[in-house]
Write a protein that binds this DNA or RNA. Sequence first.
DNA 1: ATGAAAGCGCTAACAA
DNA 2: TTGTTAGCGCTTTCAT
Lengths: 370, 370
Amino acid sequence: MSRAIAAPPLPPRPARPPEIMVRRPSVTIKHVAADAGVSLQTVSRVINKEPNVRPQMAERVQASIDRLGYVPSISAQRMRGSRSYLILALNDRERTLADWRERQGADWVDQMMLGGMSKCAEHGYRLIVELVDTHSDHVERELSAALAALRPDGVILTPPHSENPVILAMLEAAHIRVARIGSLKPGPGFALTMDDERAAGLATDHLIELGHRAIGFIAGPAAYELSQWRIKGWQHAMQAAGLATDSFARGDFGYESGIAAAEALLDGPLMPSAIIASSDRMALATLEVARRRDLRVPEDLSVISFDDTPIVRFTHPPLTAVVQPIAEVSARAVERIIAGDGSDGEADRQPEAIPASLAVRSSTAPPRRA
Amino acid sequence: MSRAIAAPPLPPRPARPPEIMVRRPSVTIKHVAADAGVSLQTVSRVINKEPNVRPQMAERVQASIDRLGYVPSISAQRMRGSRSYLILALNDRERTLADWRERQGADWVDQMMLGGMSKCAEHGYRLIVELVDTHSDHVERELSAALAALRPDGVILTPPHSENPVILAMLEAAHIRVARIGSLKPGPGFALTMDDERAAGLATDHLIELGHRAIGFIAGPAAYELSQWRIKGWQHAMQAAGLATDSFARGDFGYESGIAAAEALLDGPLMPSAIIASSDRMALATLEVARRRDLRVPEDLSVISFDDTPIVRFTHPPLTAVVQPIAEVSARAVERIIAGDGSDGEADRQPEAIPASLAVRSSTAPPRRA
DNA sequence: ATGAAAGCGCTAACAA
DNA sequence: TTGTTAGCGCTTTCAT
């Protein structure tokens, strides 16, 4: 008999909170069942929109739910193995914190949140940004703590985590869906790229079309797989035009390294009339080096940034930049994870490429001596 | 007898994942207990570092934990009413998404994450950024879904949520610890401000000291309580110097509104020689209006921004700006929430003020006609 | 179509 | 100091 259900008294809310009010007394499925005069199962079925419930019955239960203000306990649901509706976005702690500290914004994270959170919201999911040190030896502890605490349904890896073997192994062992952004290496889950090679080619071609012959390239750190793709894109475009690829330097994406790299290029044997920098910071640095040497941009030196961050639009001149579709890629990653992609035994191993584009502004022009 | 514990077989990991591998077979407290030959409770005690466990015993259990790779199920722990170690940071969805879409960064959110996440990490907590529409009528649904899903130990409210009665009521009813940033009104939890009034005074005084007499002010929307404080700060400083406070306009923090406001001020009866804008966007707009009118900054017009965001340092000239200690305030909010502040029946009702400062750059100078 | 019973992994309360 | 007994809120059998 349904009325036989123990109808637990709704604990009266104390007028004054007791010594320590940790958890609020909450309405459980039992209260609803008692109130509606049905069994726990029926309530459970209504909550989960399962079949085999007469509409009339469902209505009655729903009424009780509404009246009592019942909200299912996610913890309890999850304990029974349900989804967590959480997706973890792993970002590089060091770099992100540094960006925030400099108070220059972290465009990458911003755009990830934009694309990821929006897409998540569409499906009742939630995106959680987590910062992790790739290089530290407690990645393992950090990540396992995060996984244990959050039990995410999926994880989105960004460079340089996308290639971190420790992280990949853990995720694979945990059978958690994985999206790897900016990685082409084989690994668990699926890979997504912004076609960095093509993007670098785009930038190079733009300069070549303007008439540049000596085009310098400042690469990112080798730890980032995509650094190599960008180099390749530049090299191939140059070679296709029969140009030399000697004007090359490497930075670490940061400003200081950009200063050094730009100086190296401009001091090099073939003084470039244009420089492509693999990050906004390094592009900014290039601008600064040009200024110090009284080189006007773009008249004496064209500069292209590889990040279309807020600041590159407010420099003088505003920089021509490769626009990376970070938001789109993140949205796509979320979409595929929710759809069930990225589980361990995937068939489709093709990395998906979301094309980058080039925003032409005022830092590129034909070379003087063309 | 401890050996009497049912020793559940560790489910063999299938060589090939079955049809749908949803949850991985996981090691539970039972496995550990069986393995170590102790009771569940003892394991529980070791996990929670409770007293009354002989070191030797603890060691043995720990060994089993390590060997089996046991990780406590947070869901189960939480179901027993433990803390969630989650703190929710509620931000304005509309504004934040707009900032991200414009790809100009959302300094506020960045700085919140910087301060909040860092402090959280110190205490084993996690900060989750949640976007909520203040104006929509489904705030209630959105928030209750978030609360149900995450069960955060505390919530940090930012303007304009800090003053949203619906949100405040819900949080109070749920007995969740609350930090209200940028609010002085009484309410649940504790309040934190950046002393906007004093900050506006600081900016005004700086201009007065430079010799300005006609100082215009572009206020933020009235929906933000802090808009009024800033107005007050300006008014008081002006009155203290015996100056008129007629050169006043209101915007909505956005660029377009800034254009209109700046034009209104410059077309007003007393043409100001300096303008304080209540947001970076409106300061940028003021710069643009000045440019259109061939007013040089700072020679013909001094401009002060009320946000020290990335872009105001890359404009020409770089803007003098009020630096809001968002990271510090967020860190403080997290700290107090973890400490147990912000529960309903708080005694200390004094808002805590974290002072803002002024970064003097090149957009302010003595007026020409001084 | 509905209900009863048996847990899920864990901890509080109470033995011993 | 350690173990045993009840559940927590929910879902999954399996009855009815």
